[in-house]
């Protein structure tokens, strides 16, 4: 199946000399929720801005549903809705006027019924005649979402959607994202909150210093997360692991001083008690033990630091 978005060898340098993107390769599949995770300044917004046509690409190719973003910009852009990170608003316009404007701008004929439903879903209908500067921050963010969805896009970009957003709006937003996904809309969100990626995404990509350093199914990532390690510091160095303990798939450190047991923390039966008993039976004593779990955060921090 044709990917919703295909990015090949995309680079971007700003006039300041800053290399924002260094050869990004990324395919976003139709209908998935993709979370782009990365620290501030990693290139998330630049990447989104290029796909949406707000920033000129440096080198490389980007296509949206098979349409090149430069050669077929009309077809490419018509498919995309963008909710930017900042609250950019026409302060003196009414909610209704600004949403109607957005729909027209993206080449769609008037459809008051659709816009009414959209505003109702976002709890904005009561405020449709209000001018935007009268609204609260959360309401303004809802207006941005309404604008992005006003032309019924197939692909929705949410740039840091929950930055500075209260709990209620956050919950509404996730509900809306799930609803959109059910209708087949592809969603790309950027965030630096790991829980957000964990909660929503089908796949997670990590970007750091302008490079994609990991793209993984969330399930696979979570599987890695579920693993725990028990580290035993031995009294005396061990030459080799007794064959009777093969079932535990233990790892022995090079100097023979440490034994590492990896187990699934999600399971009822972790096997730790038996292992310790077995070790005693084989005369392997330990002076200390520690268990650790790698969180997505650890993986993330290690990845990012590894590149630093």
């Amino acid at each position: 199946m044709q990917p919703a978005i295909s990015i090949q060898q995309l680079t971007k340098s700003y006039a300041s000399g800053h290399h924002a993107l260094k050869g990004i390769d990324l395919d976003i599949q139709k209908g998935e929720i993709f979370a782009l995770l990365g620290p501030n300044g990693a290139g998330k917004t630049t990447l989104i801005s290029i796909v949406c046509g707000i920033v000129n690409p440096g080198g490389g190719k980007v296509s949206v549903d098979g349409h090149d973003i430069l050669d077929d910009y009309r077809l490419a852009r018509a498919k995309i809705g963008l909710v930017p990170q900042e609250l950019f608003n026409d302060a003196f316009e009414s909610v209704w006027a600004t949403v109607k404007f957005s729909r027209g701008l993206f080449g769609k004929g008037p459809n008051p019924a659709y816009l009414e439903k959209l505003l109702r879903d976002l709890s904005l209908w009561e405020k449709r005649e209000a001018r935007i500067f009268e609204l609260s921050g959360g309401m303004k963010r809802r207006v941005m979402i309404a604008k992005a969805l006003s032309h019924e896009p197939d692909i929705l970009f949410l740039d840091e959607p929950t930055a500075g957003v209260d709990v209620e709006l956050r919950r509404d937003m996730w509900e809306m994202v799930r609803g959109l996904r059910e209708r087949g809309v592809t969603i790309i969100l950027t965030t630096h909150y790991i829980e957000e990626a964990e909660e929503m995404a089908d796949r997670i990509g990590v970007i750091s210093k302008g490079e994609i350093i990991l793209v993984e199914d969330k399930a696979v990532l979570m599987d890695k997360l579920g693993k725990k390690q028990l580290r035993l510091i031995l009294q005396r160095p061990l030459q080799s692991i007794p064959p009777a303990l093969d079932a535990y798939a233990l790892e022995l450190s090079a100097d023979g001083n440490e034994l590492v047991y990896t187990f699934d923390a999600q399971r009822q039966h972790t096997g730790i008690a038996e292992l310790l008993r077995h070790l005693g039976e084989h005369g392997i004593d330990f002076k200390d033990l520690q268990s650790s779990q790698s969180s997505l955060e650890d993986i993330f921090v290690n990845l990012v630091r590894g590149r630093a």
Binding site: R74, A76, A78, F88, N89, K147
Partner: peptide
Amino acid sequence: MPKYSGTIYEVLSAPIS
């Protein structure tokens, strides 16, 4: 005005010449 307020993003991202 849209350049100043930032709303120009929408015009730039729209399928228009």
